[in-house]
Amino acid sequence: MVYLDNKLLLWINGLSGKFRLLDNIMELLASDYLVPVLFMLALISFWITGDNTNDRKKHQIGILIALISMGLCNWAVYIINGIYFRPRPFETHEIYLLFYQPTDSSFPSNSAAFAFAIATAILMINKKLGITLYCIAALYGISRIFAGIHYPVDIIGSAFLSWVIVYAMFKLKPLLMPILNNVIRVAKILCLA
């Protein structure tokens, strides 16, 4: 497993430093700001859109669950990082680094967990947008391996963690509905839902 992880890291990262344009695109994609802001803007757009009030409400409940899942994922990553520290690839391998040098644990990736949590939750309520976000989340993960700050297993682990948490949250949806309904009812008064 570790052998495969290292092999894949060296293969993906091996592509960096060869094509200036590809490096620039991957550096931009791997940024801490581009994908998170794009995902949040997608959620805001999805919150406002809908064919009718019921359709919009379905979107809004999904978004609230996505936000709760995202918070839980970050919390889970924080706990795992506290228990298990994995050095970053640039600390253990001679690789091409396109990013600043983060000091926290490599596994699991907090950024990837954030992106996959939102993508998975949206996939549960809207396939088209969900698949688009999933593809962007996957590209985000790959770009961070390409940039030399994560191993493939960090990204796969984050995706799996997000999937488990989002799935559990959707299973718990009936329990959350009274709270989510009240949030939306208050938002309706302010014309925000």
Binding site: R185, K188, I189, C191, A193
Partner: peptide, 30 residues
């Protein structure tokens, strides 16, 4: 009031919220 955001199709924001708050005081939450 049930329409929430939908009210913004025909009314500006401040007037829509004003009316929603009045309706809320009269009829409770949507």
């Amino acid at each position: 009031t049930e329409q929430g955001l939908g009210n913004l199709k025909h009314t500006n924001y401040i007037l829509a919220v004003k009316k929603n708050i009045r309706s809320w005081q009269k009829n409770g939450l949507p």
